[in-house]
Write a protein that binds this DNA or RNA. Structure first.
Length: 177
DNA sequence: CGCTTTTGACCAGCGC
DNA sequence: GCGCTGGTCAAAAGCG
């Protein structure tokens, strides 16, 4: 099977060890799992990712650079706007909802300009966990779902689904800046 | 009965 | 200054 997840870590990384764990994903029968990790404003595009349309997708996805700027939702006055690290997962799947083991609650849905499919906004339901994620399907390839994670989970996984948490752990390690 | 989803409104940032 | 777009909130409905 070639359904193996292919995780592309920024090659510029030199601090932590590369993900040597054999990450296997049981999301379904035929899901091409492609991860496109975007570190802050810098999208990892191109590379050796199999999809030819990937660059275009990345372009449309990060068309507006402003979408990487996230303002702090603090009730305090002058909180500076910090940009959190976002991780864009590109998954080839028939379903939008990828159960990664965490509990998500949908809190919004908006139609994006360049996509005819709406974008869904989810938030982790754990107490004190402000992890958000967006799920968006591409217009060009409706078989491709882009899941953008924002933030880090600071609690154990809810279910014992797969070792997807291993992947998340790897990324959390990486994203601990 | 409690939680999740849905959906419209509201708001802030940016471009023109 | 206005309009557009993206992101969040909140109320109500829906479901197990």
């Amino acid at each position: 099977m070639e359904n193996f997840p292919t995780i592309f870590f920024p090659s510029s990384s030199s601090t932590q060890a590369p993900p040597s764990s054999s990450a296997s994903l049981n999301l379904g029968s035929s899901h091409d799992f492609q991860v496109n990790i975007s570190e802050e404003t810098d999208f990892v595009r191109g590379s050796n990712i199999g999809s030819t349309t990937f660059s275009n997708q990345s372009k449309s996805f990060g068309g507006k650079e402003t979408d990487n700027q996230v303002k702090v939702v603090g009730t305090k006055k002058g909180e500076k706007k910090i940009r959190k690290a976002k991780y864009a997962f590109q998954t080839r799947s028939q379903v939008d909802i990828l159960d990664d083991g965490y509990r998500w609650r949908k809190y919004g849905q908006k139609a994006v300009k360049n996509n005819k499919f709406p974008r869904s906004y989810y938030r982790c339901t754990h107490k004190g966990c402000n992890v958000k994620k967006q799920v968006q399907r591409l217009t060009k390839d409706e078989g491709v779902v882009v899941t953008t994670y924002e933030g880090m989970h600071s609690h154990p996984i809810d279910k014992s689904t797969d070792n997807f948490e291993h992947i998340l752990s790897q990324m959390q390690i990486y994203s601990s800046v």
